[in-house]
Design a protein around this nucleic acid. Structure first.
Lengths: 121, 121
DNA sequence: ACATAGTACCTTGCACTACAAGGTACTATA
DNA sequence: TATAGTACCTTGTAGTGCAAGGTACTATGT
């Protein structure tokens, strides 16, 4: 099952193309994840699927620590639910504070876009 | 002259509002800096001024290491020029590779914006 | 001539983040 | 019983932004 050879990154300095994409996503993932959960409560695989369908790649090793951080910051709550096919799932929902934070992030994103557009002229 | 008391960040965990803005800027700064230099050659204070006028705050401690990284990655070259009022200035210009990278970053930013818009629906 | 303020350069150490690469536990199917 | 699939989580590393320092030069005022 685990057949990822992963022979790339011969030279850590030279992965500029992929690295830049990764760096640009930094800090925006939190916004994206809150966006997806805001629509309806979701568990980890839901989130990964939705982000992937929007061409945003996220892996488990990134998502789980991030969800934990958001929960510790009181932006999310979770509840266990049984699954009909597999182990139980941890569904996340936004708290009041999470909704407020999401509003702030919307504005931050909007301002950031404006700044970039200003620089493009 | 140095009178910044800076008594904030009582609790490192609680600076969420400012921290999120900072995190969102991560990885985008490189794009912004290349954008400003692409117009015409600039030295550090020029860059800070232009970004500030676009509502993007950058400080020296961030900029200088970043410029060094870009130079080591062969995206920038620099040349010294005398100033009529003060010490000499280090002017940066894009290399061929820097222009190519900037094109790639334009596209990355465009894709990222599209992804966010897809999530907003 | 000397001190002060301003400008420009740079470095160090810390906090935070994304990711790769692991691991555990449960369920369904052959 | 074994295998594959799903879901959860942790650890270690590389990269980044920033605060807080420092050095060197120039202009200005006394």
């Amino acid at each position: 099952m685990k057949e990822n050879i992963s022979e790339n990154n011969e030279n850590p300095k030279e992965n500029s193309s992929e690295n830049q994409k990764s760096q640009m996503r930094k800090g925006i993932l939190e916004y994206c994840i809150l966006l997806t959960i805001a629509k309806e409560k979701k568990y980890a695989s839901d989130i990964i699927r939705e982000l992937k369908s929007a061409d945003l790649i996220v892996v488990e090793g990134t998502l789980y620590p991030l969800l934990s951080r958001l929960r510790q910051s009181d932006l999310l709550t979770h509840s266990w639910e049984e699954s009909q096919s597999g182990p139980p799932r941890k569904y996340y929902e936004l708290t009041k504070r999470g909704q407020e934070t999401l509003s702030a992030l919307r504005q931050t994103w909007s301002e950031l876009s404006k700044s970039i557009n200003r620089l493009l002229k």
